[in-house]
Design a protein around this nucleic acid. Structure first.
Lengths: 150, 150
DNA sequence: CCGTAATATCTCGTTCAGCGAGATACTTGG
DNA sequence: CCAAGTATCTCGCTGAACGAGATATTACGG
């Protein structure tokens, strides 16, 4: 049996980081009268908005691992808080596009901005080869986690 | 305004990885008749066990961001499934130590083993300096996320 | 075209995770 | 030895998310 200690330490660090990030977004949620799922939905919407793609209700539900009833409920809650609006897709009128409100984006930036800033700061201390290593590791983990059932 | 594009790409990668890891553990949960919180509890228990420290009910609740009632409920559920057992702490009889069952550990390893294996495999492709960079970044993110209110 | 199948969302009724309030049991310090 | 503090549990309740199925729209074979 080989000695994987150095590698396992990093695996545990990754897990510890995801746990802390989860707790942080839970705190953001409860401070703003939301639930963790609502925050995850907002993040998915910001991501879509940033990459210029539009988000349908169904796709959002899939990303969150919810069924259709739960998806409707999430969008209802966010709409009630004014963080998103429903827009009928005119190209396929079965679809409902969910658009995030600019003020919700600002709210998120106010809370997560410092954390993101700190991460960027950390990354600025690395050279090109180190950044490539970090990028490669995270990409690999993301893809391995995304792979279907095991 | 400086050009943070390369750094932001990595920040988004980190988030994408945490999202995928979250979905993966949600799938593990529902496949084994558990809820995401139960899985998070098991992970915290494995972590404690691995580092040789014991876990009390209260500490577990804090780690999960639950109040005492919710904590009791999580431990009840896990105990009912045979994944943990309650043991009165004889040194301070107010406390309840939560011990994880060996079979629960095996269950987790069977599901997450391949993913961890893949991560270790990826890490084996990096040299010492690259590993240090990855470790440093993850440590920094974890600590930044853990810092108190903003 | 027309009808059937497929797709997207929503409604309804139900279950149970997690909360607040407070009870209980034990420990510690004056 | 009593009061205050700490750890866990009980009870009742709210609401997130589920399953089943309704509704509206699109796609497709004949």
């Amino acid at each position: 049996m080989p000695d994987h200690e150095r590698e396992m330490e990093i695996v545990h660090l990754l897990r510890a980081a995801t746990v802390e990030l989860g707790l942080r977004s839970a705190r953001f949620a409860s401070r703003n009268g939301m639930h963790p799922t609502d925050v995850r939905a907002l993040i998915a919407l910001m991501d879509a908005s940033r990459s210029g793609s539009e988000m349908t209700a169904g796709r959002l539900g899939t990303l969150l691992g919810l069924n259709s009833a739960g998806t409707t409920a999430v969008v209802d809650r966010l709409e009630r808080l004014g963080h998103v609006r429903r827009v009928r897709d005119e190209r396929d009128r079965r679809r409902v596009l969910v658009e995030i409100d600019e003020r919700a984006v600002e709210l998120g930036q106010a809370f997560f901005g410092p954390l993101i800033g700190r991460a960027v700061e950390l990354l600025e201390g690395y050279d090109e080869r180190e950044l490539t290593a970090i990028r490669g590791f995270l990409t690999g983990v993301r893809d391995a986690a995304a792979e279907a059932s095991g």
